[in-house]
Simulated assay, not measured.
Amino acid sequence: MNIGAAARASDLPTKTVRYYADIGLVEPSGRRENGYRDYDEREVQKLRFVHRARTFGFSIEECRELLALYEDRDRASADVKAIALERLHVIERKMAELQSLKDELTRLADACSGDDRPDCPILHGLSTGLLDKP
């Protein structure tokens, strides 16, 4: 199938499929007589794989490593699990950071009266990092 069909089948933009081919992550199965990239179902499956991995936040290099493990029938599942657990730890750290930001922004918003006065604890908190206690 052509690159457009492969992109639709993998739910990726054509530009992304082309980029993945250019960096050697998921290469087309060949080229047509007109020079256009040609993808078969195996490459489309790899594109779906990478798309899903990227959704989890895996980097391009991590995707490259995961694809290598995916294609290696002699792989140890422990290797795959180690990569997944590291990604999970990164996600957990990000979630904790986001929760902290949410809590702080909630405190800033709660401290603001939201009236016509010019003083604003939100702006003060953003500029100083400190919340003035009312």
Rank of each mutant, 00 (worst) to 15 (best):
G129V: 05
R64G: 08
R48I: 10
R107C: 09
A6Y: 04
M1N: 03
G129Q: 03
V50P: 02
C112E: 14
K94N: 15
P28T: 05
F49H: 01
D116I: 10
P13D: 10
T106C: 14
V26E: 00
L131R: 05
V90W: 02
D103A: 15
T106M: 14
H51E: 10
A7R: 03
V44E: 03
E86S: 12
R64T: 09
S77Y: 04
L69I: 01
A76R: 01
L108F: 10
D116K: 00
R87Q: 15
L85F: 07
R31V: 11
D72F: 02
V44M: 07
S113Q: 12
T128K: 04
S77R: 02
P118C: 13
I3A: 11
R48N: 08
D40Q: 10
L126Q: 00
I91T: 12
E65W: 01
A21N: 14
Y70A: 13
G129L: 05
V26W: 00
R117M: 08
T55C: 15
Q45M: 05
Q99S: 09
M95I: 15
K46R: 05
Q99G: 08
Y70I: 01
G57E: 10
D116G: 12
D11S: 15
M95G: 08
K94A: 15
A9F: 01
D103Q: 13
Y39D: 04
I60S: 11
K133Q: 10
L25F: 03
A111C: 09
P134G: 13
S127F: 09
I3K: 06
P118H: 07
I122W: 01
D40L: 13
F49I: 04
F58C: 13
S29Y: 06
E43S: 00
P134Y: 03
